[in-house]
Design a protein around this nucleic acid. Structure first.
Lengths: 218, 218
DNA sequence: TTGTTGATTTCGCAA
DNA sequence: TTGCGAAGTCAACAA
């Protein structure tokens, strides 16, 4: 990894055109050849960059980074304040926990949280417009489509509504009810869901994980 | 801006949990206090970070960065290979060109691409639930609402559907047809749109820009 | 402050 | 490879 602090201007021409006027910035060159330009403040993201795989041509005062797709990053350098290279080695990678997939998995193992006597038919139940997160049968064997979200938004209600509309065209399943389950449900989403006869359930991630952990103890 | 190259492990606890095992990485501290951790390869984005505003507590071998929302980034440092601080000053900011607004502008100037004899009524046609990108009249003077996207997704179809539903309540306009125009249209979005009687049109940005450029030549 | 929408979204998974 | 949906989405802008 190479770190350069320099007074520079940057132009990107590719999927769009972007221009950074002359100023002092950090230019970061990774081992895979990708180039990132960072300012000191403003957004925490890089204001300009070129994603790998890409090729770099360096001449005094001017860098040119070209992508396979014809995208181009051109850096004009007026003054270099710092330039150092460091050997970092490979990174073992990031482990994430607590995302939607995990939430879905936890709920699939605990469908009784939705109602006594409920059972899971299958996860990722396929339809023509995409998979339903959980398909269940309630205590009276009625079909229920469950949409799981980390944050329950209007989009999620729309998504579940589309599934329900489609599933209810199938005489073998109909009537299919809907449950919208999320860690947080925004008021607007809740209103819309309930207006459409969809039940809203707030999930407690820690409690669900706790139950799961308990289960593994015995 | 402070640059630290160090052998470290990183833990984030907040909206989710994430862990980076011990390895050599770049730790970048910006003037606003935000902290970014970069590996040398893999994804070109930062694998772990804390966005501003945040507060940093540094003790030998351990950093703790805390957010207002109770999110926490904990960096355990085993060995420091480099540590330097640089004064960058303020950044003038980024200028972009060629995004959706541009696409809409181009299509507005070339509504004949949608059909012979079509004319533009106006861009950003106002409704109670937001502006319709383009309102047109077709060859038979029928009203047509056009939604322009760079990537045509189901969300865009839903958006246009809401506009059409509202517009068709107005006897002075009704019937209003819909056109969904985008550089790329995803199959599921196309299915949904056509199921609702909305015409899908794929836009060729380069060709549209080319025509525009030609136009300026004469 | 809150909500909405676009993004060079990026990223990961699965068909 | 391509398609599709989630993201600690982020960030800009309007209400």
């Amino acid at each position: 990894m190479r770190l350069v602090i320099a007074r520079c201007s940057v132009d990107y021409v590719g999927r769009l055109s972007a221009h950074l006027p002359m100023a002092t910035r950090l230019i970061l060159v990774k081992a895979d050849g990708s180039v990132l330009v960072h300012s000191d403040g403003g957004s925490y993201q890089q204001p300009n960059w070129m994603s790998p795989p890409c090729r770099q041509e360096e001449s005094p005062g001017s860098w040119r980074v070209v992508n396979k797709g014809g995208e181009e990053l051109r850096i004009t350098i007026e003054d270099v304040l710092h330039d150092s290279t460091h050997e970092l080695g490979i990174d073992p990678g990031l482990k994430k926990d607590g995302v939607e997939a995990h939430l879905q998995e936890l709920l699939a193992a605990q469908v009784h949280l939705l109602g006594m006597g409920w059972r899971l038919v299958r996860r990722e139940y396929p339809t023509a417009i995409g998979p339903v997160d959980l398909m269940c049968r309630d205590e009276g064997s009625g079909a229920v489509a469950v949409e799981v979200k980390r944050r329950g938004d209007i989009d999620g209600v729309e998504q579940l509504t589309r599934y329900l509309e489609l599933l209810n065209r199938d005489p073998a399943l109909s009537p299919v009810r809907g449950v919208f389950a999320a860690q947080e449900i925004r008021p607007q989403a809740r209103v819309l869901a309930e207006d459409r006869g969809i039940r809203c359930v707030t999930l407690n991630y820690d409690a669900m994980r706790g139950i799961e952990l308990e289960g593994t103890l015995f």
